[in-house]
Design a protein around this nucleic acid. Structure first.
Lengths: 219, 219
DNA sequence: ACCTGATTTAATTTTGAAATTATAGCAAAA
DNA sequence: TTTTGCTATAATTTCAAAATTAAATCAGGT
């Protein structure tokens, strides 16, 4: 763990959100032990509250739980990265296809807006040559774009599942934070997805989604 | 809740399994309140242990949780049934396709065996004109068949997600228990899926999976 | 030196009760 | 009769400590 936050008392949902944020931004090392006692002191609550939060995070796939042996930040592996990528491709392709089928002009507008934002941030990254100073902004905007893409699919299950996969995916990608070349390539890919989606060109959209997501496994 | 089980003390995993079983076999009514106090007495443990188990079941999608308002057996609805069905079709089609791609002779053998079992039980149902006396057997065999079908997909994520969806799907299907016509139609459909899978005929397998699962929404 | 087993230490898990919050019942006013 | 507010009841949620279990330390033997 990197920084110790406020020592003030927090409600259970706030603790969940804070730990969730720390996990997907990899402020815990892969496989790092998450001790009840430490977290209890950090958040100023009882061990039981921490336990409950960690349980929820474990079913969200960000934390590994072993009986009588506590909680750890989820470990990464080549196999798991591959699995997450392939599954994310499946869900995003299906979600985008359904959105293209059901989405109205409102959906198109929201998608354009989301693309405008992420595109603007990525242009800044290209100019600055680094992403660190806008990483949190970029991270939110990237999520917004992909979530908006599938937001008209009319399947709550698909959308919820996609979010859990997306979060686990993010958790693996920390080492990429300073490699701004990664973000630069996103600019073209996001535009390709946007244009295919607006044109309701399903095969093209599927292809660009696959290309965009699969590139994450190349190193 | 229908029957009160043993009053003896149970370990947390045993409580989870028992409640899971009761939920997917709909021994709780849809939307029925799950009171900590009652369950605590039933299983001879503290309210906190019950809380922990219900939390796990809520992230498995079988129980609905509302802050400050406790737990309920998940409600059903036409929309949710449709969503579950469509999502299950997506996952099972993808899982079967991948299994056909990666599966070896061992997978074929396991699939044949699983089909033999479910087929045998469904023949019995046809002869007897009712399913109630073998419902538990049938339920396990049906799961075995579908799980084996996707078992060679080489994606733990896909397989785990499929299980959670399958369980939620089961939870909705209780009223069907005495309608044995439903089970009779399964015989042909399971065979069609088996044969397409063994022939590695992906389009045909996808079609039969869709037909088999979609039929559940017709009433 | 290395393995084995007992003891100490540190962690997780369960408990029972206190604190908090929602729900139901009831009375008074519109 | 309906609504509003208060009270009593019942439920959920949090807590601190006890009980349980795993991990680490150390001593004795091979």
């Amino acid at each position: 763990m990197t920084d110790t936050p406020t020592r003030s008392k927090m409600e259970t949902p706030a603790i969940y959100d804070d730990l969730h944020r720390k996990l997907v931004t990899a402020q815990f090392g892969h496989g790092e032990k998450l001790k009840s006692e430490e977290l209890r002191q950090t958040y100023g609550c009882s061990a039981n509250t921490i336990r409950e939060v960690l349980f929820r995070l474990s079913t969200a796939g960000l934390v590994a739980f072993e009986e009588q042996r506590g909680f750890r930040a989820r470990r990464t592996s080549k196999e798991r990265q591959h699995d997450l990528t392939q599954f994310r491709i499946l869900l995003e392709q299906e979600g985008a296809s359904l959105s293209m089928k059901h989405g109205d002009i409102e959906w198109e507008a929201r998608l354009s807006a989301a693309h405008h934002k992420i595109s603007h941030i990525e242009s800044e990254v290209r100019r600055a040559g680094t992403v660190v100073h806008v990483l949190a902004l970029w991270s939110n905007a990237e999520w917004e774009f992909h979530d908006t893409l599938i937001s008209a699919c009319q399947s709550p299950l698909l959308r919820e599942t996609y979010k859990t996969i997306y979060d686990q995916f993010r958790q693996q990608l920390v080492s990429r934070d300073t490699n701004y070349g990664y973000y630069i390539e996103n600019i073209e890919e996001h535009r390709a997805i946007l244009e295919a989606a607006l044109a309701r060109d399903e095969p093209s959209c599927r292809k660009h989604i696959r290309d965009h997501l699969a590139r994450n496994m190349l190193n």
